[in-house]
Design a protein around this nucleic acid. Structure first.
Lengths: 153, 153
DNA sequence: ATAATTGTTGCAACTCGGTTGCATTTTTGA
DNA sequence: TCAAAAATGCAACCGAGTTGCAACAATTAT
């Protein structure tokens, strides 16, 4: 029997967060651990496949719980659907790029976010939960297969 | 008859963008011109009131057109609804803060966004349409009326 | 081990933001 | 002023996400 390291990670994560380890939570967490880009709920459902067959409500509840416990980060998009990624030390807060054409989300190199609060907020009237930098445009792939268009920032 | 300066602004904006000036477009544009924070479609509808009585589909189409022409910016939020603000020279690109408690969006001081592309994107494989920095947490108002909670970034 | 309690999941139905198709009305340009 | 083109309104729809509740699984106490 081959030991699954990822599975161990998932188990440990739930344990550290102090939430009970169910098969559904482990399945969702394993998908997020394997991911190299933020995932939408639809993508997670597809990755789970028909074998797991977890209800979408359950997925939303699991993701909501994970976010509350700081296990994952939630990223907004103008498309309507939100995206999720691990919030581990190995995956520190970083900007994202979403392509206007193909809709794909990619991760960009981390910035010194520790300075960001002082940089962005002059007065400390706010308490910060989350900083989100999203850049949208065309990815290299879609750029070549599209007409030129004016840049609008 | 008192001359409405804002109305002149709206007319000029549509003219410059080369799109026909209808009463609905002028009404929506005037609301956006007056706004001091990004507005949701619902807020715009409420501001229009029953007197104007513009269909929601029309508002969505107007906002979509304005965004395409670079008249306004669209801001994503995890709540599902998108927010809109003027994209004029007097209102340059800037970060936003949204309160987890009351949901209100506020505008923060502009950053040197001209440097942002080089800062954020190491390789120039991407063409950038829009940069979005959203900070969420608790505003000063809600901060005082809520229990302490762990910061999660 | 077993019963009682608590927490989790699945299902159905629903809300809300946003879109599409099409008929009707308004704007534009000759 | 009148025809062509564009914009609006209406109804119906789609997708993301939520709520209530019953069924089920996992703990905890006995």
């Amino acid at each position: 029997m081959v030991t699954n390291l990822k599975h161990k990670d998932a188990l440990l994560t739930l344990q550290k967060a102090g939430i009970s380890k169910t098969s559904q939570r482990l399945a969702v967490l394993n998908i997020l651990l394997k991911a190299t880009t933020p995932l939408s709920v639809n993508t997670i459902r597809q990755s789970l496949g028909t074998k797991a067959n977890i209800d979408k409500v359950t997925i939303y509840r699991i993701l909501s719980l994970f976010r509350q416990r700081g296990i994952i980060r939630e990223i907004a998009s103008v498309g309507g659907a939100n995206y999720f990624e691990m919030a581990t030390l190995e995956n520190p807060l970083h900007p994202h790029f979403s392509c206007r054409n193909c809709g794909a989300f990619t991760c960009l190199a981390p910035l010194p976010f520790t300075q960001a609060p002082e940089l962005i907020l002059s007065k400390n009237d706010y308490s910060i939960d989350h900083i989100e930098i999203n850049i949208s445009g065309l990815c290299a792939c879609c750029r070549n297969s599209t007409k030129t268009q004016k840049t609008m920032i």
